[in-house]
Design a protein around this nucleic acid. Sequence first.
DNA 1: GCCAACGTTGGC
DNA 2: GCCAACGTTGGC
Length: 154
Amino acid sequence: MSIRYWLLKTEPTAFSIDDLASRPGKPEPWDGVRNYQARNMIRDEMKCGDQVLIYHSNCDQPGVTGVATIVREAYPDATAFQPDHRHYDPVSRPDQPRWFVVDVAFLRKLKRTITLAELKECPQLSGLALIRRGNRLSVMPVTTAQWEFILGLE
DNA sequence: GCCAACGTTGGC
DNA sequence: GCCAACGTTGGC
């Protein structure tokens, strides 16, 4: 089975590609995902060696900013167990976790941000969940063709 | 800051 | 199980 490709959204004020780049060799748990569809992909489908596009949302220039790779497969999201944490979920318990993370490691930052506006104009990406109106999914699969096309825009 | 789109909650 | 109310996401 060959590797798969994904896109992960993050708000750069919370965690950005620069944050990831500043911790070379230090994997980061991709925590805080609280959506079942996204959770299922994290828990069931993302594998070590898969590659991910890092996407910045809710910022001046929404778009793809970098590339990372998965270095640890799903394990429980510890932030859900912490009452003081922004992502605390009392229903998720250590003996029966509801939310999961994978660890991602920095690969590279793109030379420029490939903006959402730009991606929207590409008919080759019409099937990508990101550009569908009203889309809120924070984790989504990217096909090999979409992956190569997006990085080809760099 | 606005607001459309979407997901979740909870009364019934 | 329905669905209105509410909260969140996230582009603009």
